[in-house]
Simulated scan of single mutants.
Amino acid sequence: MAVEVKIGISDSPREVTVASTLTSDEAYAEVEAALSGKAQLLSLTDDKGARYLIPITKIAYVEVGGAENRRVGFGAV
C-alpha cells in the first residue's frame, strides 16, 4: 500500500506531496532519521520513480498518512 507524505516548506505557501511506495512506518522512519540530524536532506522517491531532496532546515512540518483512492464521477460513492 502506498503512503502519502506531505511536507510543509518554510517561507512557502505550498506544500510538497509525495505518493511513495513505502509503508507508513518506513516513511515515518525516513523522516525521523533525517530530522534527528543524521542527514542534511530528506530523500524520498515517489511511486513513479521521481526523487525528492528537501533540506531539513526548510521543513516546517511533515504529515505521513495513507494515500486515498480518488474516486471520479457521479456514481462514485
Rank of each mutant, 00 (worst) to 15 (best):
L22E: 12
L35N: 03
T57I: 07
Y52S: 04
L35E: 04
A29L: 12
R14D: 13
I9Q: 01
L44W: 01
G49W: 08
A60K: 15
K38I: 01
V5A: 08
G37T: 05
L44N: 00
D25G: 04
S36T: 05
G8E: 03
Y28F: 11
S12A: 13
I54P: 03
E32A: 15
K48R: 05
G37S: 08
D47M: 10
K48A: 13
V16F: 09
A39M: 13
A60Y: 04
E15K: 12
V31P: 00
I9P: 00
E32N: 13
E63S: 09
E32W: 12
T45W: 05
D25W: 01
M1V: 11
E26N: 05
S12F: 08
I56V: 15
D47N: 09
S36F: 04
K58P: 02
D11R: 11
G49A: 10
E15Y: 10
A50Q: 09
L44Q: 03
V72K: 11
S24Q: 05
A19P: 00
M1G: 15
V77N: 11
R51E: 13
Y61H: 09
N69K: 07
V64S: 04
A27D: 07
K6G: 10
F74K: 05
R14P: 00
A34Y: 02
A76M: 09
V18A: 08
D46I: 11
E30I: 00
G75R: 13
S24H: 05
S10Y: 08
G65T: 12
E32K: 14
T23L: 09
T45C: 02
E4Y: 00
A39I: 07
Q40A: 15
S24L: 04
A27Y: 02
M1Q: 14
V77Y: 09
I59G: 04
G49H: 06
K6N: 11
